[in-house]
Nucleic acid binder design. Structure first.
Lengths: 386, 386
DNA sequence: TCCCCAATCCAAAACATTTTGGTAGATTGA
DNA sequence: TCAATCTACCAAAATGTTTTGGATTGGGGA
């Protein structure tokens, strides 16, 4: 590979001039610049990323390093997010460096490495927890970052983030179900270790309260991890009301799942029990809703009523924000909250290939940039028994 | 950030010793090493990736830079592949640098940059075309790479690759359909610009021939790009036999789609026309098959009979191969061809969440490593009229 | 004539590491 | 005891770029 030195020798100028010619400085004559560019091209010259990088320049790369989870290969959301992040990065003339962290302590190590080694200009955080050490860590490391989600210190969030109003999302599906006449709603969730899962659950409780529906702790099952957990949870819900001294009406008529993947598992389980899945509260019929609106949500039968996470928009805004911070174009505390929208799908609806592409830039969302409000009162967030 | 110099000063040794202590060289005493390690830790030292890199070391990063396509955001295969590549890279202690190329000439530029700038140790190529300039380019750039797919010079492939027997895959679904009694099969495909799409099509033709079924060019429609193309194609297939002087039996009883996405579009179109989708060749009933076995294939109704691409395995092997080449552990021409397997799903079948995880390493596939045979005779590959 | 300015250019420093080619001192072998 | 070998360390070179802080011109104004 040829170096800047070779170009300089060939062109009969100093390496300084080559560097400045190639990087568009004004103090090099047009004629010299042209010669240099030509020679650089003919010698197939590409500046060493390592050397410029060492010198302190941009890397034009941002990192995404989620924590490894079990069965991550089948997590649709992860793949969706990563893919759209890559495309958003491209639109911002950036590359995406994707890594995975083994354990929380490995996460720590990776972030320190990323910061210390100068491989990236910034980093994207997801799966934010109510108390998330990564925020402080990155702050102290002086590495620009932007979060998808928020910590629990709602009053005074000191870092840039994008979030979806998760509580409102669940409220929307509960509203939908309540509107259909459902009054016994169950809630199924994975572990309550991320903020968004807590927000979704608190939205569920809020909405029940608003509709004057009772909150029955027997209908809330969290911490579902393995597929077998879902099997057990559904069985437990169905067994309610089977004891002779219990009222038959104990059984839920609708199940609100905290994400689409879970919803799909629940539907499978219900069908295995010979229970049809539909939106109206009748005897042998249970409604199921999801959250995320992953591409498959419209494909399944019955099509899933769910809440849309506008992942493409989210990743675009994340990168907009990150780029602004890297370029010091903004004070680094800007926040964006996107509204949640319920996608209502009826059982025998004809569902077409929906257009999900979204190339909108953050500008159009600026109206949401502003001070953050707590979307959920912390005391609402209790741990549901598993 | 602290540098190696700070550690050296603190420990009272030279930077050479620090470097060698930290990198496990033998000529540093255990006691010194321990001191150095301890101080490095206490100073939160992480070596600068740029500096080591400049010095000629590994970057522990591989790149994946597919060509930008329209509607790429909704391409499930892309996201699936990218996600699984990331996880495979992680298992090999590598990071994945994901970029997108605008145009073919931009691809060229990106690869040259990647090679010249030393940002990555190797690169992963996908969507190989029969004549693919990238192969020669990367060869001349001296950047290790491995391909998913192959060029048309079957006799003497000079680069490492992983491929799936695409022709056999389509043969398998045609066998399935023929076994059900179908005799008029249509073939729908996207553009024939990649090797795999040609192989799939040639498998279709081979199989028809083997079953002594006629090949009717009116039933082959390629170059489908926009969703509206599919609408038109299905309409055209359905209109066959509508003219009074044509036999009613001209209409296909089964449609073989070149990928799952297309199959799903076809199913939607058929349902729009009020035609039920099922596996048996009857009057108002058309069978549809796909290719890829993307996660949603089992979710749709009716569940899709398709051909499995073992993407997780593929990406694992790609990285195994690439790592071997980077480490010079192998002559750089190893090839792996994986068999294709049809996934037969019946219309009202109960489809569970299937386990797709595959963490198998290439070792177990070594039996497929060997000389390559042409999977399809080039003359078979004709361009279907659109 | 002298000085100054703008337009071009450049040498050297800085970036943080690894590798090369040693040296000094201790230990071993004959 | 002397030479050879080992052990533990180090100075300096090499890596390729950008930036800093000038240096060199040629021409215009006083």
């Amino acid at each position: 590979m040829s170096t800047i030195f070779d170009i300089a020798r060939e062109a009969g100028v100093s390496i300084t001039t080559v560097s400045r010619a190639l990087n568009g400085y004004s103090d090099v004559s047009e004629i010299t610049r042209r010669r240099v560019v030509e020679i650089a091209q003919s010698l197939n010259y590409y500046p060493s990323a390592a050397a410029r990088n060492l010198q302190g320049r941009r890397t034009d790369t941002v990192a995404f390093a989620p924590l490894l989870r079990e069965h991550m290969e089948s997590e649709q959301f992860f793949k969706e997010f990563l893919g759209l992040l890559t495309l958003s990065a491209f639109r911002h003339d950036l590359s995406l460096l994707a890594t995975v962290a083994d354990t929380p302590s490995h996460t720590d190590k990776i972030y320190r490495e990323l910061a210390g080694s100068g491989r990236v200009d910034g980093i994207i955080l997801a799966d934010i927890k109510p108390q998330d050490e990564r925020i402080d860590l990155l702050g102290s490391l002086d590495l620009p970052f932007v979060a998808f989600g928020r910590t629990a210190d709602y009053a005074d969030l000191k870092y840039p983030l994008v979030d979806v109003d998760n509580a409102a999302g669940t409220r929307a599906v509960v509203d939908y179900l309540a509107g259909k006449g459902h009054s016994r709603l169950a809630y199924l969730s994975g572990p309550f270790n991320t903020s968004y899962s807590l927000h979704r659950y608190s939205g569920f409780r809020e909405s029940l309260r608003q509709h004057n529906l009772p909150i029955d702790d027997r209908l809330v099952i969290a911490d579902l991890q393995e597929p077998s957990d879902t099997t057990g949870a559904v069985a437990r819900l169905l067994s309610l009301g089977e004891n002779e001294h219990e009222s038959k009406s104990l059984r839920p008529t609708a199940i609100v799942a905290a994400n689409d993947h879970l919803a799909w598992q629940v539907i499978q389980e219900l069908q295995r029990h010979g229970i049809s899945v539909g939106s109206h509260p009748t005897g042998n019929n249970i409604a199921v809703t999801g959250y995320d609106d992953l591409p498959f949500a419209g494909y399944v039968q019955p099509p899933l009523t769910t809440v849309r996470q506008p992942i493409a928009t989210i990743s675009d805004i994340l990168l907009d924000l990150l780029v602004m911070i890297i370029k010091h174009e903004t004070e680094s505390k800007k926040k964006v909250t996107l509204p949640a929208k319920a996608i209502r799908r009826e059982p025998n609806e004809q569902v077409g290939m929906e257009k999900r592409a979204n190339t909108g830039r953050a500008e159009q969302y600026v109206r949401w940039i502003g001070p953050m409000q707590a979307l959920v009162a912390p005391e609402l967030v209790i741990r549901a028994s598993a």
